[in-house]
Design a protein around this nucleic acid. Structure first.
Ligand SMILES: [Mn+2]
Ligand SMILES: [Mn+2]
Ligand SMILES: [Zn+2]
Ligand SMILES: [Zn+2]
Lengths: 133, 133
DNA sequence: CTCGTGATCGAGAACACTTCTCAAGAAACG
DNA sequence: CGTTTCTTGAGAAGTGTTCTCGATCACGAG
């Protein structure tokens, strides 16, 4: 019941071309830069679809923008993200998963979900910052 | 250089009257409901100030809204939040702190900060949901 | 207790991000 | 093809937050 359009292909492709997390607007700009006439609303829709299908991870930047990324790893995992360049490292942490589940259960909470992200400056951006300081 | 106004007092008081995390707009409504003529912009400003002074914790709801809470515990900690009623439990987890620091360092990241929150349905809201289902 | 200065306030405008509306377009399928 | 139905895209609308700027008020100096 979901049709195949070049627009959806384009969004998926643009996501793949990107290493780190990107916003819908940035992706739209990138697509436009290559000459694509895709609409902004369509980019938002495609990203939302990819996210629910599990083909993309999404998170909120500290500034409140929604960011998306085509993830290599399939299962549940978390991210270490450079707040300067967006570079992302996928991290798995069974210990944290267990901890989140336990702390919820111990307090009588059900349907627990957790948000676990680490933001920092990657090695390259750290070096760059030190040089310019 | 920071003046004392009844507005700031009112915001701090309203925060204290609230168990869980609340949004700036909710707080503004609550204040209005008690007859206070405080302005919305002022509520935003007061909350931002409280947050940088460390007198309030802030986080982003999964929907992207900024939420605030007057926390009892002083030090760094995390939260277990009911997504229905906002009830909040403060949690400390040295293991998670260490893990975040380590995973950043191991990947060459500096100035690491982490976002760790657990959302769920509290016991009361779970019961209520089961009853109405 | 004035006064003066400058921080603070608040109404509304402006912003940034996201979603909605709906007419036009194009997959899918017999 | 032709029909059906989903998808698209431009712009409007919605939502949360910040900005603008004249009026107000806190507070230390005199
Ligand atoms: Mn990932
Ligand atoms: Mn807290
Ligand atoms: Zn970087
Ligand atoms: Zn609850």
């Amino acid at each position: 019941m979901k049709r195949n359009t070049w627009q959806r292909e384009a969004v998926r492709g643009a996501l793949d071309d990107n290493d780190g997390f990107v916003s819908a607007q940035a992706l739209h700009s990138a697509l436009h830069a290559t000459g694509s006439p895709i609409g902004l609303a369509t980019v938002y829709r495609a990203l939302a679809d990819l996210a629910v299908k599990g083909d993309a991870d999404s998170l909120q930047s500290p500034e409140g923008e929604s960011l998306y990324r085509a993830c290599s790893s399939n299962g549940h995992h978390h991210h270490l993200i450079c707040r300067n360049c967006g570079l992302t490292v996928e991290i798995e942490a069974d210990a944290v998963e267990r901890w989140a589940k336990d702390v919820a259960a111990q307090n009588g909470f059900t349907q627990a979900a957790h948000v676990v992200d680490v933001f920092g400056l990657c090695a390259a951006c750290t070096a760059k910052a030190a040089a310019s300081a």
